[in-house]
Design a protein around this nucleic acid. Structure first.
Lengths: 121, 121
DNA sequence: TCGAACCATCACATTGATGTGAGGGTCAAT
DNA sequence: ATTGACCCTCACATCAATGTGATGGTTCGA
């Protein structure tokens, strides 16, 4: 598929798909005429990127963790340098902290909503 | 306490404490000489702000949800307009989505790390 | 062959969260 | 009274993510 379809199917502006490519989060094939050519897997991949961006991870970090998230678990051990592992562990812990913070605050919001609803009902 | 102490105790640059005030996330008292004056509660409050920012929420949204997160649950119903409630519900759902995305990806990272560790052990 | 609807690159603008520094008060200790 | 360590405001700079538009090539159907 071309960039327009991927854009529609992921709800992502073309501009951003090109930007993600520039940041090396995705690598598109090119047709003979220079058009980008994506296969189905890019839909999930792009949604994953958007979710992570939305959750506060910068592209630089996403680029580092994406390669180890591929579905058919293919691990290229050459990539698994000690530094890489340390980075991943660090990011894993940061994500856990984020999750806790989000849950804590979301629950507080939910509780507030319930009190308000209960009072107004 | 003054801004320097709050900065140290929260690990937040003074610049940012002033920025949060400018964005109306916090409102500092002023001493006679114009210095900002914070009490203990600002420590938690600032950490909460930082956590939410780190989790990808913009100050504009944080400003909206903060008032309903105060510990001694004090609900000012004048604030609880239908729009406000709708906003809160929307943010609550977005936060849930973020949590799910983060957990999914964090677990994938953790799994990767375990496989790598297992293989190298 | 012409126009619509794609695609490309390039470049400049904006927004939000920050960094940094200038220019200048306050205050406590010397 | 001076110095050092605070504080103030203001303003410009930066960075990442994103918007927007200029300029031009490709494809396809009327």
């Amino acid at each position: 598929m071309r960039i327009g379809e991927l854009s529609e199917r992921t709800g992502t502006p073309r501009r951003l798909l090109r930007y993600y490519e520039e940041q090396e989060l995705i690598v598109a094939n090119r047709c003979a005429n220079g058009y980008r050519d994506y296969d189905e897997r890019f839909v999930d991949r792009v949604m994953q990127i958007r979710g992570l961006l939305d959750a506060g991870l910068p592209t630089r970090i996403i680029k580092q963790i994406l390669p180890c998230l591929d579905k058919p678990r293919v691990i290229y051990f050459p990539d698994a340098t000690p530094e890489m592992i340390a980075t991943l562990e660090h990011q894993r812990d940061r994500m856990t902290a984020r999750v806790e913070c989000l849950i804590r605050n979301r629950d507080a919001i939910a509780e507030y909503l319930e009190v308000v609803r209960g009072t107004n009902a």
